[in-house]
Design a protein around this nucleic acid. Sequence first.
RNA 1: GGCGCCGUCGCCAAGUGGUAAGGCAGGAGACUGCAAAUCUCCCACCGUCGGUUCGAUUCCGACCGGCGCCUCCA
Length: 468
Amino acid sequence: MPEFRLYNTLTRRVESFAPADGHTVRMYTCGPTVYNPAHLGNFRTFLFEDLLRRTFRLVGWQVEQVMNLTDVDDKIIRKAAANGENILQVTEPFTALFHQDRRYLRIEDAEIYPKATEHIPEMIALVERLVANDVAYVAEDGSVYFAIDRFADYGKLSQLDKREVKAGARVAQDEYAKENAQDFALWKSAKPEDEATGAAWDSPWGRGRPGWHLECSAMAMKYLGETFDLHAGGIDLIFPHHEDEIAQSEAATGKQFARCWCHGEFLLTDGTKMAKRVGNVTNVVGMREQGISGTAYRHFVFSAHYRKQLNLGEESLDQSRAAVNRVGAFARRLAEATAATPVLAEAATRAEQLFLDALFDDLNAPEAMAVLFTFITEANRELDAGGTDTAALERARAAFRLMDGVLDLVPEQETDAELGAWVEGRLIARREARERRDFAAADAVREELTARGILIEDGPSGTRWRRG
RNA sequence: GGCGCCGUCGCCAAGUGGUAAGGCAGGAGACUGCAAAUCUCCCACCGUCGGUUCGAUUCCGACCGGCGCCUCCA
């Protein structure tokens, strides 16, 4: 089994990583809050996690991934209340949209997508454990808080001990109910709008709803065990979300929660963090309407290391689209080739090795992509050279399958049958014109197609077309 | 105010103590009826100033510039 190295936020170092049981990586990834469309920044993180799970399989491990769907929280309740709806009416359509967007970006299915609202009993049980362990306390109003100063390790993930809260920093509005301003809510007593929107449940402390951090601890432990291999998410979740998850989980079980923590950096737009509040968000649906494929976005995301900020500029997606078209053209050529030179086999084997080296070294996707593109150039050269080595061709196909099996960059083929029939008809007209050597007429057809966004390529096996 | 990250070709972005991957764009050529695709060749001395070193883009310091976290947040 090759060594896989990964940066661990807990230790702030790149370390050797392997699942505890040696064959299945149990990973928990924080999913979306389903009250609006997830934006491209959110999907950068999900794509990073997709790359992680695919790379794990390349190492030879199985993957058990849990991605939660937060379907009860302040923003959802506010939205539901404003519309006079139940929270389900808010979350169901956005849950569906999330999966649609996810598939467009070819993000693999996680094994489990648990919803917070379907795990209220597990969450209540966890709070009871914490109260029993005397690290949580019940406030006058029936809310339950976690007392951070009763958990010695508090701050170990975010290195809070090295931090100082900004002088005059905002403090929580409901501070009066807490012993310490930094204590966080495990259980929030129900307010009228909670009841009105179906966001309140019975508990030993009265009607209420779970605090945000609680769901992840309860669901991670339910599906992955009290200790599991990896917990991933966006870098902004380090504090307070993940810090609080660690506190409430480890204070309850006395065991280490996640063995490794992994965080992806932000997506920036025009130099600032993509965020709803900034108003610079782009959604998958919007991207789609601009004719940008999911594979182009994958290329863009993988062009930077996951721990570095990545700026989405005006030209970014167009550049990636062009890059991904090259991969697509190569994929078709490889599929249709019949033989190649022996040199191709060497290039393929070398590329595979370099590709794995790059990904296994803290998931260096940009490096891995560079290997892929270098291989494409080499392979095209050997394919041009002719050759009769069919085994070499198979070697190349296997290498490409391995690499694209992780990156998944080949753009989708056109599936619009009506458009296809029309294009084929025009191509027949063009072929006839060319056979007459009436090139003016042939070029007129090409321009007609170009006007509709169709590009054509004449090759040995006839004319091929695709969308520009 | 505290903590941290980044500054590499026109744009995006890897990387290394010994003279810098890849993608996009661009230039020249081959191929093509013309294109497209493909191939060949060309296209950077790594923010500034110091220091360490035989040698630094790569280590250290200062400075300038940008970003993020400390508060809901991928």
